[in-house]
Design a binder for these strands. Structure first.
Length: 425
RNA sequence: GGUGGGAUGGCAGAGCGGUUGAAUGCACCAGUCUUGAAAACUGGCAUAGGUUAAUAGCCUAUCUAGGGUUCGAAUCCCUAUCCCACCGCCA
């Protein structure tokens, strides 16, 4: 959520910035609602003040009336009238405030000034490239064929158990998948200074509001069918960032890493990436989440992205990093770097990590604060990034490390986690 | 699943219908004293919203959350959530 005060004072500047994101802010509606709010709030508070003062004086008034043998009903009648006026004023205010809140909650975060203009992913700008795609002297297979030949990757059985967009892994491929998870967690804990956290995979609506998935993007989520309004997490970002909802934290930065499954309905992407495990309803991710001082978030964003990249370097997987253009930027993000890994079968780079700076947008929704140098509470900045998406990393390893005979060489850094195994055949 | 008991400021802990945003203690900050420290003493010390040039005043809200009763609710009633204890069941 944006700062309402900032919106009042710099409406036009903000509206201009939001255009980079392809969002048209209805300034007239905002100004009109804001004017109504101001008037109604002043009125409601004035009536409340009068009502409080009267109620406070009643103790004495009743005492006097009784001493004089007077009827106290007229005294009560005035109180009742004030109560009704107050309720009416509150209702009028609540109506306008509700509309204003809805408007406010639907406004995306302001893009950082360094975000390039553009409509969609075609306009994202490459900022760096690492490694050289390997040239194969044989016809490369994709991960689906490789996995089927090795007998460790099976989509038909998963479809029988559940339906489309699920995978069943077995044997060494299942183990490789687990080894990747361990590898990523270990590096972040040992080399990047993150604390590992284990969190619920089911969250309430407040948490989803805090990180920005609700109310606008409910269709992307799996919702549990009971009265509690619980949802399966679409990313660890939701439970991990919400660790500090309603908190005033003691010190910054705070860096958490968590391994969780992620569940996405993929409602808006039917027909896209239907083959293989690129786009699944259930996948695993190691996620980095940081809470930082506002002055540190730009640097933290660079660091976090570099930390995700370092995993691909250790795995010796070629990748490139792009900065998302305004039109491709998510609702809550001020700036996002996507890391794209090379997939030989597709002869292109595909997203394997998304690293975002949310500035104070999520923190304001969550009321996550710290005490600044003056001892005043201030909203902190939140960031997160995949480090990495495990399923897609598995795909990249299978495809980039495939041999002419269909076997898979195991990257050196993973061999200790695979019991010394050097290849899967 | 059942039966009880809880939830009050950073923490502990009073209050149980009328100057209570909330006693008291601890912690914390400033000052006095001291060579310095401790002790003692004095003062300060919540969050959010509004108004405003103002982080000055003033107003409003907040005693887990949401409803209700009342002229008036931290205090009474209802619901939810969480915690604790015991019983039952169970991985």
């Amino acid at each position: 959520m944006l700062d309402p005060k900032l919106l009042r004072s710099e409406l036009n500047t903000i509206a201009q910035s939001l255009k980079v994101k392809g969002f048209e802010l209805n300034c007239d509606e905002f100004l009109s609602l804001e004017a109504q709010r101001k008037e109604l709030q002043l009125e409601a508070e004035a009536i409340q003040q009068e009502r409080n003062a009267y109620a406070k004086s009643m103790g004495k008034l009743i005492g006097q009336a009784k001493a004089n043998g007077e009827d106290i009903e007229p005294l009560k009648a005035r109180g009742e009238a004030l109560k009704k006026d107050s309720a009416d004023a509150d209702a009028a205010l609540a109506l306008v405030q509700g509309q204003l809140d809805a408007l406010l909650q639907g406004i995306p975060n302001i893009p950082d000034s360094s975000v390039p203009e553009g409509q969609d992913e075609e306009d994202n700008i490459e900022v760096r490239r690492w490694g050289t795609p390997k040239s194969f002297d044989f016809e490369v297979k994709d991960h689906v064929d490789l996995g089927a030949n090795l007998g460790g990757l099976d989509f038909d059985t998963a479809a029988k158990i559940t339906g489309s967009r699920f995978a069943k892994m077995s044997g060494s491929i299942a183990r490789l998948h687990r080894a990747l998870t361990q590898f990523m967690l270990n590096i972040h804990i040992e080399e990047h200074g993150y604390e590992e956290v284990y969190v619920p995979y089911i969250v309430n609506a407040d948490s989803l509001f805090g990180t920005g998935q609700l109310p606008k993007f409910e269709e992307d989520l799996f919702k549990l069918d009971d009265e509690r309004n619980y949802y399966l997490i679409p990313t660890a970002e939701v439970p991990v960032t919400n660790i500090h909802r309603n908190d005033i934290v003691d010190s910054l930065p705070i860096k958490y890493v968590s391994h969780t499954p992620c569940f996405r309905s993929e409602a808006g992407s039917s027909g896209r990436d239907t083959r293989g495990m690129i786009r699944q309803h259930q996948f695993e991710k190691v996620e980095m989440v940081q809470f930082v001082h506002p002055s540190e978030s730009t640097q933290a964003h660079e660091d976090l992205t570099a930390q995700a990249e370092s995993l691909l370097q250790k795995l010796n997987l070629p990748y490139r990093t792009v900065v998302l253009c305004g039109g491709d930027l998510g609702f809550s993000a001020a700036k996002t770097f996507d890391i794209e890994v090379w997939l030989p079968s597709q002869d292109t780079y595909r997203e394997i990590s998304s690293c975002s700076n949310f500035t104070d947008f999520q923190a304001r929704r969550m009321k996550a604060r710290f005490r600044n140098a003056e001892g005043k509470t201030e909203f902190l900045h939140t960031l997160n990034g995949s480090g990495l998406a495990v399923g897609r990393t598995l795909i990249a390893v299978l495809e980039n490390y495939q041999q002419a005979d269909g076997s898979i060489a195991i990257p050196e850094v993973l061999q200790p986690l695979m019991g010394g195994l050097t290849q899967i055949s």
